[in-house]
């Protein structure tokens, strides 16, 4: 269809009785629509914020109720905010290692754990390598018996049988003297004699102190925790 034909059709339809009827129709519809349009504009101009508009015209009891509701809601939110524990921030793992949770509580717990572990893994009551008091050292010599010569020799390393025999004689002599000294309570003399034995028998692999020698032969080397 050409534009000329469209125009022709338009003219015909525009001149039809229907078009005339519509254009001359009663103005009730026009009045309603135009009135609605004007009312909308005037409403927008005079509109107050919703919260204020809602409060106007409310009775006093309703206002009190609204105030109470707002106060309680605020209190509820405040209370809930106090219960919120901040989440631990997401920290990327470095080299796939666990990141340090360095907070006050975890640090305190770690210190406590360390103390417990130290207590559990504490070594035996007497440590021969530590330096006990003189009274303690004397008590060790009084309460524990001296080891047999064969036990002392078992710890040593000797190249030839002659060396072992010589060492055995030296140890035997020294242990007899030391035993006598311990019996009469001359503990320092016993220690001095043991020191001389150490000098003589350097291949005997003896403990550094007389107390250590006594305890080593008495205390089991391993604990059976059963």
């Amino acid at each position: 269809m050409t534009e000329k034909q469209i125009e022709q059709l338009r003219t015909i339809l525009a001149a039809s009785s229907l078009t005339e009827e519509v254009s001359q129709s009663p103005s009730d519809l026009d009045t309603q629509i135009l009135q609605a349009a004007h009312e909308r504009v005037s409403t927008q101009e005079g509109v107050a914020p919703f919260s204020l508009r809602a409060l106007f015209g409310l009775p006093f009891s309703a206002l009190v109720t609204v105030s109470l509701a707002v106060t309680l809601t605020a209190a509820l939110f405040f209370g809930m905010s106090q219960m919120i524990v901040p989440n631990e921030p997401a920290i990327a793992l470095v080299n796939n290692l666990e990141y340090e949770r360095d907070t006050f509580l975890t640090r305190k717990a770690l210190v406590k754990n360390t103390k417990v572990k130290d207590l559990v893994s504490r070594p035996e009551l007497f440590s021969v390598h530590e330096a006990p008091s003189k009274m303690s050292r004397d008590r060790i010599l009084m309460e524990f018996s001296l080891p047999a010569v064969s036990e002392v020799l078992a710890e040593g390393q000797f190249d030839f049988g002659q060396g072992r025999v010589a060492a055995s004689n030296a140890i035997d002599d020294a242990m007899q003297e030391i035993s006598a000294m311990v019996e009469i309570g001359t503990f320092d003399s016993a220690r001095e004699r043991y020191a001389k034995l150490l000098e003589v028998c350097d291949r005997c692999a003896l403990p550094l102190t007389l107390e250590a020698l006594v305890l080593d032969s008495t205390t089991p080397t391993t604990f059976d925790t059963g």
Partner: peptide
């Protein structure tokens, strides 16, 4: 709006 309505009232109704 009055002017818009005046322009398009009849075409829309037809």
């Amino acid at each position: 709006f009055d002017e818009l309505y005046r322009r398009h009232r009849t075409p829309l109704l037809v």
